Computed example of a mutant assay.
Amino acid sequence: YGRFNQGVVTVNLVDIGLSANRDMKKFWEIFDERMELCHRALQARHERLKGTLSDAAPILWQYGALARLEKGEKIDKLLYNGYSTISLGYAGLWECVYSLIGKKLTEEEGKELGLEIMRKLNAACAKWKAEENIDYSIYGTPLESTTYKFAKCLQKRFGIIKGVTDRNYITNSYHVHVTEEISAFDKLKLESEFQALSPGGAISYVEVPNMQDNLPAVLNVMKFIYDNIMYAELNTKSDYCQVCGYDGEIAIVEEDGKLIWECPNCHNRDQDKMNVARRTCGYIGTQFWNQGRTQEIQERVLHL
């Protein structure tokens, strides 16, 4: 059977960090309040599904995609006992930790606080699960477009704070910031500790150049992934300009405060006449992105 998830609610960790104003006692108090807010929102998602008949989606509920229920049978029993999950998403661990103690996740003190926050997220889910027999779990929210929404809300509420709200995106889940200079192997090793605490869903990546002429390096990275981390990927570019035939990397340029995709060869800017493929947050996206995610893509440094 396929995976069955009842829904996700994402907590903006950066907002909690900034709201605490570097006071750790206050941080944990606000953290607990936000956890309960997320809990209530997840319960609403759960309640919304109760009473749904298998007839609503026969392929899912009757023919084996998710279950094999009888016609007219309610799906309620599948919402309990670990048959399905319901996800507490999280975003911006990097900025949250930096806002609290001025340390990065790549620094020991920052890493330890980051891991403590992850353990607290898991503890909240474990408590709810024990009380309700619903399989709550921690999930690294992909933030395909929400990264921009969260960032703009933070800027509106707290202003521009260097290293925290000075970009139009926030970092996905537990990831090392996209601008951080770090090797592929160090990044994967570090993030493996956080990924182990994100059992409901997580993915790590390393950004690489064109590796067609260096396949041994690709194999070395893949072997390291196999030995050290549950789920990771190599990000590369796959672009094409339909106007001039250029098949290198389509550039992102800024004009009047707006980021624009442009062919570096013929300067074509018509998105209908170019193909751009980028790993968004776990899958390959080709439909272009909002300004926040585009800035994040533009600022990614190579790890290899």
Rank of each mutant, 00 (worst) to 15 (best):
residue 1 Y to G: 06
residue 2 G to E: 15
residue 6 Q to W: 15
residue 6 Q to T: 13
residue 7 G to H: 09
residue 8 V to Y: 12
residue 11 V to M: 13
residue 14 V to F: 04
residue 17 G to A: 12
residue 18 L to M: 05
residue 22 R to A: 09
residue 24 M to Q: 11
residue 26 K to G: 04
residue 27 F to N: 06
residue 27 F to Q: 04
residue 28 W to M: 01
residue 29 E to W: 00
residue 31 F to Q: 01
residue 37 L to F: 02
residue 40 R to K: 12
residue 41 A to G: 09
residue 44 A to T: 12
residue 44 A to Q: 13
residue 45 R to I: 12
residue 45 R to C: 11
residue 46 H to Y: 14
residue 49 L to M: 12
residue 53 L to H: 11
residue 54 S to C: 00
residue 56 A to N: 02
residue 62 Q to S: 10
residue 64 G to T: 14
residue 65 A to P: 07
residue 69 L to P: 02
residue 69 L to K: 11
residue 69 L to H: 08
residue 70 E to W: 06
residue 73 E to P: 09
residue 75 I to D: 00
residue 76 D to W: 01
residue 76 D to S: 01
residue 78 L to M: 13
residue 78 L to P: 06
residue 79 L to R: 05
residue 79 L to I: 09
residue 80 Y to I: 03
residue 81 N to A: 14
residue 84 S to G: 08
residue 84 S to A: 10
residue 84 S to W: 12
residue 87 S to I: 07
residue 89 G to W: 12
residue 98 Y to P: 03
residue 99 S to F: 04
residue 101 I to P: 02
residue 101 I to H: 03
residue 103 K to C: 09
residue 104 K to P: 09
residue 107 E to I: 13
residue 107 E to H: 14
residue 111 K to Q: 13
residue 116 E to S: 05
residue 117 I to R: 00
residue 118 M to D: 07
residue 119 R to G: 08
residue 120 K to E: 02
residue 122 N to W: 04
residue 126 A to V: 06
residue 129 K to F: 02
residue 130 A to Y: 10
residue 131 E to S: 05
residue 132 E to F: 04
residue 134 I to E: 04
residue 136 Y to L: 02
residue 138 I to K: 13
residue 138 I to M: 14
residue 142 P to L: 03
residue 144 E to T: 14
residue 148 Y to N: 07
residue 150 F to Y: 09
residue 151 A to F: 11
residue 152 K to W: 06
residue 154 L to E: 01
residue 156 K to F: 03
residue 158 F to N: 00
residue 163 G to A: 14
residue 166 D to V: 08
residue 167 R to M: 14
residue 167 R to Y: 15
residue 168 N to F: 13
residue 168 N to T: 03
residue 171 T to E: 07
residue 175 H to A: 05
residue 178 V to E: 15
residue 184 A to R: 12
residue 187 K to P: 02
residue 188 L to G: 06
residue 189 K to T: 08
residue 191 E to Q: 06
residue 193 E to W: 11
residue 196 A to M: 10
residue 197 L to P: 07
residue 199 P to M: 03
residue 206 V to G: 00
residue 207 E to Q: 09
residue 209 P to S: 05
residue 210 N to K: 04
residue 216 P to G: 02
residue 218 V to L: 12
residue 218 V to M: 11
residue 219 L to S: 07
residue 220 N to A: 08
residue 224 F to G: 01
residue 225 I to V: 10
residue 226 Y to G: 10
residue 229 I to K: 01
residue 229 I to F: 01
residue 232 A to P: 07
residue 232 A to V: 08
residue 232 A to C: 07
residue 237 K to W: 10
residue 238 S to P: 03
residue 243 V to L: 05
residue 244 C to N: 03
residue 245 G to M: 01
residue 248 G to I: 05
residue 251 A to D: 10
residue 253 V to S: 03
residue 253 V to W: 09
residue 255 E to H: 06
residue 255 E to F: 02
residue 256 D to A: 08
residue 258 K to D: 05
residue 258 K to F: 03
residue 259 L to W: 06
residue 259 L to P: 02
residue 267 H to S: 08
residue 269 R to Q: 11
residue 271 Q to E: 14
residue 271 Q to P: 00
residue 274 M to Y: 05
residue 276 V to P: 10
residue 277 A to D: 10
residue 278 R to Y: 07
residue 281 C to K: 11
residue 282 G to R: 04
residue 284 I to K: 02
residue 285 G to W: 08
residue 287 Q to L: 11
residue 290 N to M: 13
residue 291 Q to Y: 12
residue 291 Q to V: 04
residue 291 Q to M: 12
residue 293 R to C: 15
residue 294 T to Y: 02
residue 301 V to I: 14
residue 302 L to F: 15
